[in-house]
Structures are given as structure tokens and as C-alpha cells.
Amino acid sequence: HNLTITQGKLFFHYNPKLCLSEIHKMEEVSGTKGRQERNDIALKTNGDQASCENELLKFSYIRTSFDKILLRWEPYWPPDFRDLLGFMLFYKEAPYQNVTEFDGQDACGSNSWTVVDIDPPLRSNDPKSQNHPGWLMRGLKPWTQYAIFVKTLVTFSDERRTYGAKSDIIYVQTDATNPSVPLDPISVSNSSSQIILKWKPPSDPNGNITHYLVFWERQAEDSELFELDYCLKGLKLPSRTWSPPFESEDSQKHNQSEYEDSAGECCSCPKTDSQILKELEESSFRKTFEDYLHNVVFVPRKTSSGTGAEDPRPSRKRRSLGDVGNVTVAVPTVAAFPNTSSTSVPTSPEEHRPFEKVVNKESLVISGLRHFTGYRIELQACNQDTPEERCSVAAYVSARTMPEAKADDIVGPVTHEIFENNVVHLMWQEPKEPNGLIVLYEVSYRRYGDEELHLCVSRKHFALERGCRLRGLSPGNYSVRIRATSLAGNGSWTEPTYFYVTDYLDVPSNIA
């Protein structure tokens, strides 16, 4: 807008934040220059609390790290170098490059900038070799853009010569660093050979998330399962459950009422301010606690030095998902009996873990797994792929695949051998790939016309006998059925096997 004052003059007093240069501009645009008398524009009460600059400061050096910015700028000295009290560095987070010096300023003089007072450097006698002032900004957020400017702080001049310097606002972004852990990993099994893994992005990506790394490792069953005799009275049979499938998407929606109208769909109840505040506090606490764990609990591995020492970490090797089922080394339970199943799973520490690289999504279907087997899954978020990966501390989750139908069934015939004193040795093959492992066998036998009897055969007993022995049988026709019990439950009964026990007292003698 054009402003013209045809008559009258300007009068400025007691404006401590208004620089004289701005008042002189007002004289020019209003056409009143030359009308004012000496005392109409006070030299001592206008701009006496402001830094009124008329020179431009330029930054000469900028260096960044993930949490620091090192700045240096060209030296500046007023005509009387004693008038320079120091520099004021202003900075704040700036997602967009549209910041002005006066953003967030209120009537009390406060604003949204963080201000650092910096002492002037030592003055050199040689004007050509003056030290460049600077400042190291610490405690910054990774991968965050900051708006920065600097200006001088000078003393009051009796001659009211307006001098000083100020830089333009520059924008500097800190470097990326390792992201925080992925949030809320959930693993479920939808079949006997697959596990579905879902997660949420890290709360602090500290860069642009480029991919996720998912490692999985087959877990050995508890050692007590191999040692305890679950045929003993009072000892509860062990059981394991597989990871249940995901709930429906509708039930997972946030901010939804727990109660549904019987007449149909209901609208979600909005969260109160107290609920939102509580969630923010919980989120802040979780982030602080995660940072504490990362800094205190997890110790970084030592990389190899120039002395030739090897990095103890196993090298990563990509495998196809079809090879995942046989990740671990199978060892027989008892070496003397080769027909026992290889369900003991000690994992070799030198073995390469299978892994998958996930790009542009937060889910993965891990296939080719062994049925009813526990897996430990390790999830890392990465925001750099080359020249070397920059990934987060791992988040861990466990899951067990679903049982395989008929995996616990005894394959092959049940054979028998009759000894003296009416002892019958029953023999059968253990299931080759049971659900988890076989903890015991149930032997059901009966003599024709009598009630059915049951015998429990422990895992250890089966390994020693290759089956079991029935003792003290009365003469007669017998039928026997056997079924295995694994961590997933009972298998199917075998087809009945028949044998006849004679009275050993009636056996004919070869003595003449």
C-alpha cells in the first residue's frame, strides 16, 4: 500500500525493539523526510534493546553428524571492536523451508527459537588472519532439518551509529543413524509349514526405512522333555500350542467401542483428552525405555581390526524358502538304536541362519518350516543398504507352526516275539517326523474274553527296548493296539495285532 503524509511529521519514542533503520525507511515511504526535528525521533529510546544489523554474515563451514552440527561463519568486528559482546545463534526444527525470524513471537518477546549466546573469538592483530567464530550444536535429532541463523550482539553506541551483522536463515539436516526397533511384532501360524509375521514401523526411523531383515531359527525343545518319565503317576503330560491366527481386521481397528449394538453396526467412541494424553505418555515412556535398553543392555560386537582377528559373527547367506525346513542338525536320541526319531534339535552355532529381506511392506510369510516346531524370529529395521547396512537392534518374537495331521501315527506293522515265561516283546517304529517329539506310547492289549488293559511306555523305555515287553501273560489269544502321544496330543491307534500265548508248562520236552 502507498502511504503519503502531505502535512505533519513523524514522532517515535520509547520503541526499544524498533531499529532506527526501520524508522528511516518509514520517513522515505511516507514522504516526511526532512520535516522531523532532532528530538522527534529519539536516538536513545528507539532500538536500544534490539540488534540492528546492516551487514550480512556468511557461514564459512558446515559439518553434520547424526546428532551434531558444527558451524563456522566469517569474522565480524565493528569499528570499535570492544562493542562486540558476542553472537546469538538461533535454531529450531523446520520440516519445511518457510521459516521466518519472527515465527511464534508474542507480545512478551518470546519466540519459538532456541538461542545460544556465543563469546567472540580472540581478536588477531592481523586483519587478514582473524579467527572464524563458530559453535557445535549438540543433542539434535537424527535425520531432522533445522533452520539456523546467527547475528551479532553489540553494545549501545553513544554516537548512535547503527552497526551489526546478521546471516540469512539456512537449512541444515542432520545425518541418518540406526533406527529404533520395529514396533509390535506379531507372529502367527496359518499352516503346519508357515508363519505369518506382521509389525509396525519404528517410532524413530532416523532416516528413510529402506528394508527390513527377518531372521528365523528353529528352537530346540526343553531338555526336561527328553529326561522326564511322563508315565509316572502324578506327572502331567506336557503340551505345546501353536500360535493362533490373526483376529479379523475389524476387531483390530483402534479407537473402536468394545460393545456392539445388537441391531447392527455401531460407531466408534472418540477417545477423551485424558485417554489420548495417557497414550502419549505411555508411548514416550516406551521410547525412553527402549533407548535405555539399547544403550545399557546391548553391547556392540567388536569388529575385526587390522591384526587379522576374525569377526566372530557368522556370515549372512541367503537361502531359498524351500530350504528352511531342514535348518537344524538332527541327532538321534540314543545312538545305539537307529530307529528312534531325530527330534532332539541342538543347533550348531556355526550354522548360517536363513533370512529374508523385506522391502516396502511390514509383513512376511515364512514358508518351508517344520510342522509343530518353535521358531525364534528376529526382526531388524534398516535405513541404508549400501555401502553397508545400517540397521536397528533386533526385536524378537516366537511362534510355533501348526501340527501336521497323521504325523504322530505309527507307520509300519507292530511285530512281536514270544519268549519263555510268557513274555512277549512288542516292537514298532517311532514316527519319523512327529509333531514336536514323542513323549510316550500307549499300549492297549486284551486277552479274548477279558477286559482291555493299558500300559504306558516312556520315551526312554522305548529307546532301550525298541518297544516294550509284556510279562506274566496268561495263555490265550491276544490283540494289541499302540498309539503315540506327542507334544500336540495323541496320534491314531494302530491296526490290531494278534498273537497267541501258550502255557509254557505244557511245552513238550526233548528229553527222552
Rank of each mutant, 00 (worst) to 15 (best):
L213A: 12
G308H: 07
D385A: 14
S363P: 09
T494D: 01
S304F: 13
D450W: 08
G306V: 09
T347I: 13
H294K: 14
T485D: 12
D204Q: 09
E420V: 03
I438R: 01
R483E: 00
I482S: 01
Y230N: 13
T303H: 07
R353A: 01
I482D: 01
E221L: 11
H454W: 03
T347E: 14
L437Y: 14
I418V: 10
N422V: 10
Y500E: 13
V424L: 08
V358L: 13
E265K: 12
L321C: 04
S458A: 09
Y445W: 07
C468G: 03
Y441M: 01
S342R: 14
R319I: 12
F215W: 01
A407H: 13
R481I: 06
E221Q: 09
Y441S: 01
Y504R: 11
A263W: 03
F289R: 06
Y504L: 10
D250R: 08
E433W: 11
L505V: 09
D250L: 14
D385Y: 08
Q256F: 15
Y259R: 05
N360Y: 08
V329F: 02
A335T: 13
A335G: 09
I377T: 03
T210A: 03
S486D: 01
R471V: 05
E258N: 08
F298K: 01
T386E: 09
C231E: 01
L437K: 01
W493R: 02
E430L: 08
S474C: 15
S341L: 13
V423Q: 08
D503Q: 05
R313T: 11
F337P: 06
V507N: 04
L232H: 02
S341T: 05
D311C: 03
V480R: 01
Y478G: 00
G234K: 11
K302L: 09
R471Q: 08
V327S: 08
S509N: 09
N421R: 14
V296C: 15
E290G: 15
S284D: 11
A405V: 13
A309H: 13
L487T: 05
D229W: 10
L225I: 08
C267V: 13
H454M: 15
E465R: 09
G476N: 01
K357T: 07
T497V: 10
Y396K: 13
E420Y: 15
A381T: 13
D323F: 11
H254L: 12
Y375E: 00
S315C: 10
P244D: 13
E404I: 09
A263I: 14
V296G: 07
R471A: 04
R316T: 08
S305Q: 12
A335F: 03
R469V: 09
F499R: 00
V359L: 09
E247Q: 12
K361S: 11
A399T: 08
A395W: 11
L237T: 06
R318K: 14
V365P: 12
Y478V: 01
L225V: 09
E362Y: 05
T303R: 08
P238T: 11
S492N: 02
F215G: 13
S283C: 14
P354E: 07
P245I: 13
R316F: 09
S274T: 06
T497H: 05
S367Y: 05
L379K: 00
E310P: 05
K406P: 12
S283L: 07
Y259F: 12
G436R: 06
I418F: 07
V359T: 08
G207L: 00
S320K: 14
S458P: 04
D503H: 04
R390C: 10
S458V: 08
V327Q: 06
S486I: 00
N360H: 14
R483M: 15
L455V: 10
Q275A: 10
S305I: 11
F246W: 07
T210S: 03
P475K: 09
R400T: 06
E279S: 05
A484N: 00
K460C: 14
L379Y: 05
L437M: 09
F226S: 04
N326L: 13
C269Y: 13
Q219V: 15
P270L: 06
A220M: 14
A394S: 05
K361C: 12
S341D: 07
H371I: 14
V393G: 02
D222F: 07
P338A: 08
D261N: 15
E350W: 11
W216I: 09
Q252V: 12
P312A: 05
H371Q: 12
V297M: 07
S284A: 14
P244T: 07
N477S: 05
T386L: 02
E224N: 08
K236P: 13
S283P: 09
Y396Q: 12
D323N: 07
E350R: 08
D222C: 09
K317E: 14
V359I: 11
E247N: 13
E495N: 12
E217T: 14
P387F: 12
D273T: 05
V359W: 11
D506W: 10
S342M: 07
N208L: 09
N326K: 15
P332T: 06
F246P: 08
N421F: 12
R301G: 06
N339F: 05
F355N: 15
C266L: 07
P434F: 14
G472A: 13
K302E: 14
K361I: 06
N208R: 12
T307A: 08
D409L: 11
G491W: 00
H294G: 06
E430V: 11
V443T: 02
N435M: 00
